[in-house]
């Protein structure tokens, strides 16, 4: 799928044939090829003189097309794990292979390219550029591609239509509600057609109604557009939407 296809999902018909949303929790996990493989991954920080092990010999495989939630108490290592998978950080030891790339062996520059190509980020605080309009924010990741300006703008507009914000394209973030801002962030995350969507508490700053809308949108992206989604959340309602929920505690998966 390319971003220009976003408004016309090619597998829309197939998506309808999959299990209804409310039954997905009980459905068998998708049997795709592994897209994320972590083997004996450890992440240790040195705070002062004391080493602090945040991830401790962690093994994890996530298959293509999965929608997984990662839960756990504060300090359990959720964000660190998400950072590693997203290529924001490298493991201290072990092997982390994401979309065929060995994160631990990549340079900063290679990781930046990896993120631009494979990862779509959805942050708890949306992280939009306040001085750019909605469509300019969505267009940002496309500036790293060789697409001509007109094509970039077209794709950004398409992505905004997918998230239902076609009438807010020229609004600045301050002119949008929290839910709308997160939709813009989702449009920005999907505009480059990344391999994996990485969501860090995507509903953490939203009211229930907006949170449900965002979760429905993520579900749609997973079912209709076959996006692999990894979501860190404290919200049980959010975790409900995922096909698999994993619990992390003291750096280990339970």
């Amino acid at each position: 799928m390319t971003p220009s296809d976003l408004d016309a999902p090619p597998d829309a018909g197939k998506a309808e044939a999959t299990a209804p949303e409310q039954n997905r929790k009980s459905a068998a996990p998708p049997k795709g090829k592994p897209i994320i493989e972590l083997v004996n991954v450890t992440k240790t920080y040195v705070r002062g003189k004391e080493p602090l092990t945040v991830l401790d010999g962690l093994n994890l495989t996530i298959e293509e097309g999965a929608f997984e939630a990662l839960m756990g108490p504060s300090g359990s290592g959720k964000s660190t794990l998400l950072n590693l998978i997203a290529g924001l950080d490298r493991p201290t030891s072990g092997k982390a292979v994401v979309a065929g790339n060995d994160i631990g062996s990549m340079s900063d520059g290679a990781l930046a390219k990896f993120r631009a190509r494979h990862i779509g980020f959805i942050f708890q605080s949306y992280n939009l550029m306040p001085v750019l309009t909605a469509v300019e924010n969505v267009e940002l990741p496309l500036l790293l591609t060789k697409l001509p300006a007109a094509e970039r703008r077209k794709r950004a507009q398409t992505a905004l239509r997918v998230v239902g914000l076609e009438d807010r394209m020229d609004h600045y973030p301050r002119q949008l509600s929290g839910g709308q801002e997160q939709r813009v962030a989702i449009a920005r995350a999907i505009v480059t057609d990344p391999t994996i969507l990485v969501c860090d508490e995507p509903t953490g700053d939203l009211d229930r109604k907006s949170a449900d809308d965002i979760l429905a949108l993520l579900t749609k992206l997973n079912t209709d557009f076959k996006k692999t989604i990894l979501m860190v959340t404290h919200d049980p309602a959010a975790a409900e939407r995922a096909t698999i929920t994993r619990h992390l505690n003291k750096g280990k998966l339970e």
Binding site: L88, G109, A112, I119, F121, N127, L144, R188
Partner: peptide, 14 residues
């Protein structure tokens, strides 16, 4: 700082 971090996360190089 967070905006810059976001730009870096999106794939903009140093």
């Amino acid at each position: 700082t967070r905006e810059i971090g976001t730009l870096r996360a999106l794939g903009f190089s140093k």
